[in-house]
């Protein structure tokens, strides 16, 4: 059996007695697009936060490939190849688009304080290489027109794209996307879907994504995991999940209240 890209086992997470995840398990295969869906408050974002290391689950394990990562801080997980975007945009708001994406290259450069401050040749060479890579990402996501703008001034949809660019610049093996298409118009959505598919296809990046747009989820994901009240209520291909009675109940139940 080949190793899974990500293995979640029996995850429990609670905040001051209120449980957000109760015993969730699933596996993500390498190279697939894995969608997590569920009503509001189902624990979807909590799950992503556990995977990227922002939350520490009280119980359960997370393995990235063969590496157990449950106790690692976020920056160590990033070093292993996990990158993510946030539900509420989390850009470095005083920086330009290019500088934001350059931060995504942090792990691929080795420039230290002194070599940077004295602008040693090694630092200059590395900086040039990082900028070249960033230019690729900028071109890939069509951000050329705004590359030197401060991110704070950009439209919401563009900011979402910059966040994706920053994550991609780190050349991740696993990309976590928290509602990448929220608040976008249909044109922007199409662009984003194309970017996600291309990232997945061309670079073989495994993608775990939370998304509310069911049409898109059913279209592009290989596997769908449905959470409700912190529990996994369904897992399978889009068509299996669509017809699952538990899922239908959970969604209808939400519309009732």
């Amino acid at each position: 059996m080949t190793a899974m890209a990500l293995s979640i086992r029996d995850l429990f997470l609670s905040f001051g007695g209120v449980s957000a995840l109760s015993g969730v398990s699933f596996d993500v295969r390498p190279g697939e697009i894995f969608a997590i869906i569920g009503p509001n408050g189902a624990g979807k974002s909590s799950m992503l936060n556990c995977i990227s290391g922002l939350y520490r689950p009280q119980r359960g394990t997370i393995a990235f490939g063969e590496t157990p990562v449950t106790g690692l801080p976020p920056h160590r997980r990033a070093r292993l190849g996990i990158a993510r975007s946030f539900q509420n945009i989390a850009l470095f708001k005083e920086m330009s688009v290019v500088d934001n994406i350059l931060v995504g290259r942090h792990l691929h450069a080795r420039t230290r304080l002194l070599s940077a401050g004295f602008s040693l040749p090694s630092a200059r060479i590395s900086e040039k290489a990082q900028r070249a890579k960033v230019d690729e990402v900028v071109a890939f996501l069509g951000l050329g027109a705004v590359r030197d703008e401060p991110v704070g001034t950009l439209a919401y949809g563009v900011q979402k794209r910059v966040e994706l660019a920053r994550a991609l610049a780190s050349e991740p093996k696993l990309l976590l996307l928290d509602e990448p298409m929220a608040g976008m118009n249909s044109g922007e959505r199409d662009d984003m879907v194309r970017a996600i598919l291309e990232t997945n296809a061309a670079h073989g990046v495994t993608i775990v994504m939370i998304e509310h747009d069911m049409g898109i989820v059913m279209d592009i994901s290989d596997t769908v995991c449905v959470l409700d009240f912190g529990r996994r209520i369904a897992l399978g291909s889009p068509s299996e999940v669509r017809d699952d009675p538990h899922v239908i109940k959970a969604y209808l139940g939400e519309e009732d209240d």
Binding site: S52, G53, L54, P73, H75, F86, F92, L102, H106, L107
Partner: peptide, 18 residues
Amino acid sequence: RALIAVRDHETAAAVMGI
């Protein structure tokens, strides 16, 4: 840049490997 990133958004900075 890492310092500025920490100032602007500590969580995002950590997630980017800082």
